[in-house]
């Protein structure tokens, strides 16, 4: 099992490095800009206060937090409401597709299946290797806030950063869980990616519609993006009610479904 995990990580290390480096680069850019923006905090806040309500709701931004006094609020708005989730999604789908959809598409699954290893162990090995990637990305790209903030002499609240790390990790893991299950089902990477992308876009739309229209407010509860509120996490060290439950439930359900599916499935090359 360890050999499969290590080999998988070796195969995906470049993707992990590139995506993590991209996240840190964006983070560095935003933190470096923060001291200059802070000096213009009053005018910037005034500008942002005039943003349409719908726009702010779309990115889960609380109007009262638009003060530019704290780096946490600023990072939540710039980095963690948009850039980081996209990078996390790309990474999660990449690792998940590699696990099974790509193996089936390229026919290499036969090498794995002809070895004395059960499907369950194969599933867990591949799941863990991707999870290690997701955890490494989340930890490095978020904990990098501390050295970068110190570098630019910006103060951050450690509790908020750690709560953000926990929430972000669960968010990325839940998406990885869906992508992994889909990778077990499909035999082509492109179809698996489209399916996961479609589900996430639908969730994103549900969150926006639920926030914008009172009559549709309940549909936002079906979206991971509603439960992923980086502003609340980094600024106040809190998460929305039910967030942890929703993400943990999604992780457990998709894991069980993927394992069940793989054990029943005909694993042929596409």
């Amino acid at each position: 099992m360890l050999s499969i995990i290590l080999r998988s990580l070796k195969d995906k290390k470049m993707q992990l490095l590139i995506i993590t480096a991209s996240a840190i680069s964006f983070l560095e850019m935003y933190i470096a800009l923060f001291p200059a923006l802070q000096k213009q905090a009053a005018s910037m806040a005034k500008l942002l206060q005039n943003y349409p309500e719908g726009f702010l709701k779309t990115f889960n931004i609380d109007r009262s937090s638009l003060t530019f006094e704290k780096v946490g609020q600023y990072l939540a708005m710039e980095q963690f409401s948009f850039v980081w989730p996209i990078l996390a999604i790309v990474l999660a789908i990449g690792f998940a597709n590699y696990a099974f959809a790509a193996e089936k598409e390229q026919g290499t699954i036969e090498l794995l299946l002809s070895q004395p290893i059960s499907r369950a162990k194969l599933f867990i090995s591949r799941y863990l290797s991707g999870l290690i990637g997701v955890v490494a990305f989340s930890a490095i790209s978020i904990l990098a806030i501390f050295p970068l903030a110190a570098l630019h002499k910006v103060s951050v609240q450690p509790r908020g950063v750690f709560v953000l790390l926990g929430l972000s990790l669960l968010f990325a893991w839940a998406i990885y869980g869906i992508a992994f299950w889909v990778s077990v089902i499909f035999s082509e990477k492109s179809r698996a990616s489209f399916m996961v992308g479609g589900v996430l876009i639908l969730m994103y739309v549900l969150n926006i519609l639920g926030n914008l229209k009172d009559s549709l407010h309940a549909i936002k509860y079906f979206s991971f993006f509603y439960y992923y509120n980086p502003n609340l996490a980094i600024d106040k060290g809190q998460v929305l009610n039910g967030s942890i439950l929703v993400f943990v439930a999604a992780i457990i359900i998709t894991f069980c479904l993927g394992l069940f599916w793989l054990n029943r499935q005909d694993l042929t090359t596409s």
């Binding site: 290499t108 036969e110 004395p116």
Partner: peptide
């Protein structure tokens, strides 16, 4: 299956392995 695969060698006609 696992016990058996310790005893089995398998070769397909069109071998597909990892390109890299």
């Amino acid at each position: 299956s696992v016990k058996l695969k310790h005893k089995i060698g398998y070769l397909s006609g069109n071998v597909k392995l990892y390109h890299k």
